[in-house]
Structure formats: structure tokens, C-alpha cells
Computed example of a mutant assay.
Amino acid sequence: MNRILRYALFALLWAAVAAYVLYAGASARRARAARSVARLEIAIVDSTSQGQLVTSRQVRGWIARSGIRTVGAPVDGVDLAGIEQLIACNGFVAKVAAYVSYDGALHVVIRQRKPLLRLLTNGRNAYVTDRGYVFAAPRASSLYVPVVTGPYRPPFPADYAGDAREAIDAELRKLDERIAGLEREKYPFYKRELKNDRNIADLRRMRIKQQWWRLETDSMFQLRVDRLKAHKEQLRRGYRYEARLIAEGIDRISERQEAERRAQKKLEKSYEDFMKLLTFVEYVEEDDFWRSEVVQIVARTTSSGALEVDLVPRSGRFLIRFGRLERLDEKFGKLQRFYRSGLPAVGWETYGVIDVRYGNQVVCRKK
């Protein structure tokens, strides 16, 4: 068989394969278009013993109220993107995928976020993940996660939903813009300063000479010198006053800039404390004893802006003053030793407050 014939046969074979594929695809599309959605199946993955943030029944209700056609609708007519967008707008949904299988079932697969704690502080009711993602607590949700209460002020608005770091960065950008805007307010003062400096330089160059060609006497020349000195002194006082006004104006703007920079530092410190709180909760959750013993975390922001916490234990009717979220091993270690050796000896109902904020000691206060 010559080469040309062999190539021709290969070309015909591939043409036949391509034609079959196109025919099969067209047949499948026609068959799909003729089918309608037979059923709606909701799958919520990542559900644990903590519970669920959303149920299949709730999702069905969302879809029904949205008006998007599902069961009975043509397979090709289902708004899959609309369903995904409808569900994804809820902050507790990490990922969602909607698709129709070959048997006509509409599948909606939801991957929910895994909260680390629940914030019930300062008007907030939100869950927070271990990476600092914040979302509003869904209605009727009841996950078994640590609860943080108290007057603590997190570094984001009460209604914020999203990554806490993004909220901080957005606020920092606003502060940077304000600082830059204040810097631009200095430009007129800089122009006045340059003009004033030129005037002072011109003042220093002001000289007069005795006019011998006009037969000017020494007394007449001295009179002109005295007048010039008086004029220069008057100008000098005006220029000094102008320089003081310029410096005061620039200083006032600089003070406002420093206030914005202090706000930036305070915001970063607040975010740092917020992440320390997440680390603290993880620390408690990783310890079997403290996970079951700590019922509630009461957080507060001190007058200096620092974050301190108190712990409400399951055992006894006392409050544990834990203080700042530092030296965790040391504080929990001495608290556990006091649990084992101190409290059984004096009685679990003796003290109202147990304070572990101070080094190498546990300070107790009776009820």
C-alpha cells in the first residue's frame, strides 16, 4: 500500500470518529434537553459532632423562595449559577457546587466553614474560624463551640462578615489616605515658608552706600542708615511672625498625622490580640481537661487597650482571673496544680475568685 493511500485511510478513519463524537454529543444534548429535573438532593459536607450551621430543609426553603425552578424544570433550563450565588452569599458557606447528574437529579453540595468560637460581645453574634474569618451566626444555629462574652471590642464592626485581616487592611488604607491628605494640607504652608525664606534672604542683602557724588554728608548718610535699620527691623519682625505661624500650622497638621499613626498602631495591636484570642481558644480546645472544664470565656478590653480574659469553669462557683493571653503553659500549669492540691483541701465552694495573673502564685478571694 502506497503512502498516499495509507494517509487517506487514516484521514477517513479519524473523520468517521469525529463524526461519531459529534453525533453522540448532539444526541446527548437532545436527550438532556428532553429530560427534566427529577429530584433535588442537598448534601452538606464537613458536618461534625459540633452540629450544622445549615440544614437541607433550610437550603430547600432558600431555593423555593428565590423562585429558581428546580424539580420539573428542563435540565438545561436550571439556573445553576443562580443557585450557587444564592447559597454562597451566606458567610458560613465556604464552597457550593450545583450540578445535574445524568439521571436528572439536581445536586447541591455545600461545604460549610468550621467555626472555632462564637462571639457574643459588645452587640455581636458571630462565629469565627481558626484563621480569623468572621460570619454572622445563622438563625437557630447551635454549634458546640467555645463562647466568648463580655465587653471585648474586636477590631472590626459588629456587622462585619469576612476575613478579619481584610477588615484591618481596609481600615489601615483609610488611615494612610487620611495621613496623605493631611500631608497635602501642608503644601500651602511649604509655599509660604519658601517665600518667607526668600524675603529673609533679600532682607539680608539690603545695603546702602554713601552718595559721594551728591555731596552727601556723614550726618545725612547716617540718617538714611538709621531709617534702613528701622525698616529692616520692622520687616524682620513680620517675617519672624510669619515663620512662627507657618511652623504652628505645620505642627498642628503633624499632630493630626501622629494621631492617625497612633490609631494604626492601636488597630494592629487590637488585631494581634484578636489572633491571640483565637490561639488561646485553640490551646484550650486541644487539652481534653480544659476543653471540658472551661464553660465560658469572658473577654474585656482594658483602659490601656489590652485584652484580658476571665474563665467560667464547670467545677465550682468561682471565676478564674486569667488576665492577658500570655504565658499560657505557666498559668494553666499552676491552675491545674491548684485544682489538684489546693481546692480539694479547702473546698470547691470556698473561693469566689481565683487569680492566676501573677507569677509563681495563685491569689484567691473568698466569697
Rank of each mutant, 00 (worst) to 15 (best):
91 G>N: 05
169 D>Q: 14
25 G>N: 09
210 Q>P: 04
235 L>T: 05
313 P>F: 03
293 E>N: 02
209 K>A: 15
101 S>F: 05
150 G>S: 06
119 L>Y: 04
317 R>G: 14
1 M>C: 12
346 V>Y: 09
134 V>P: 01
10 F>N: 11
330 E>R: 09
130 D>P: 05
60 R>V: 08
338 F>Q: 04
148 V>R: 01
315 S>Y: 09
214 R>T: 10
276 K>L: 09
287 D>H: 06
147 V>L: 06
173 R>A: 10
216 E>Y: 05
95 K>F: 11
337 R>T: 11
225 V>D: 10
120 L>C: 13
357 R>H: 07
24 A>H: 14
155 P>I: 03
241 Y>K: 15
174 K>V: 08
232 K>G: 07
366 K>N: 09
38 A>F: 08
351 Y>D: 04
259 A>C: 09
122 N>C: 09
277 L>E: 02
81 A>T: 12
286 E>K: 15
57 R>M: 07
87 I>P: 00
176 D>S: 11
106 L>Y: 00
46 D>L: 08
256 R>L: 09
101 S>K: 08
84 E>R: 04
243 A>N: 08
273 D>A: 03
72 G>R: 06
147 V>W: 02
125 N>G: 06
172 L>W: 02
103 D>I: 04
198 R>V: 12
298 V>D: 09
175 L>R: 11
278 L>D: 02
232 K>R: 12
87 I>D: 00
148 V>M: 04
304 S>G: 08
67 G>E: 04
177 E>Q: 13
304 S>V: 03
290 W>T: 06
190 Y>E: 08
299 A>M: 05
71 V>Q: 06
65 R>W: 12
122 N>Y: 12
10 F>Q: 12
165 R>Q: 13
213 W>D: 15
81 A>F: 11
347 G>E: 05
320 I>Y: 02
166 E>Q: 13
293 E>D: 03
42 I>L: 02
336 Q>I: 11
151 P>I: 08
343 L>K: 01
74 P>G: 05
181 G>Q: 10
150 G>E: 05
111 R>D: 09
211 Q>Y: 15
285 E>R: 07
310 D>F: 11
136 A>K: 10
120 L>D: 10
222 Q>A: 14
161 A>D: 08
263 A>E: 08
226 D>R: 15
18 A>P: 03
248 E>P: 10
55 T>L: 01
211 Q>L: 14
17 V>G: 02
249 G>V: 01
288 D>S: 13
96 V>C: 03
268 E>L: 15
31 A>H: 13
330 E>F: 06
335 L>K: 02
76 D>Q: 14
344 P>C: 06
357 R>I: 11
66 S>T: 07
224 R>W: 07
316 G>D: 06
354 I>E: 01
238 G>N: 13
170 A>G: 07
279 T>M: 15
147 V>H: 06
144 Y>T: 15
15 A>S: 09
102 Y>H: 13
324 R>L: 11
174 K>E: 13
194 L>M: 14
134 V>W: 01
348 W>G: 05
89 C>G: 15
70 T>E: 07
116 L>W: 01
42 I>F: 02
210 Q>W: 03
283 Y>M: 05
13 L>I: 05
136 A>N: 09
89 C>L: 15
103 D>T: 10
361 Q>P: 08
246 I>F: 04
100 V>T: 07
108 V>Y: 01
153 R>T: 11
326 E>I: 11
341 S>M: 15
161 A>S: 14
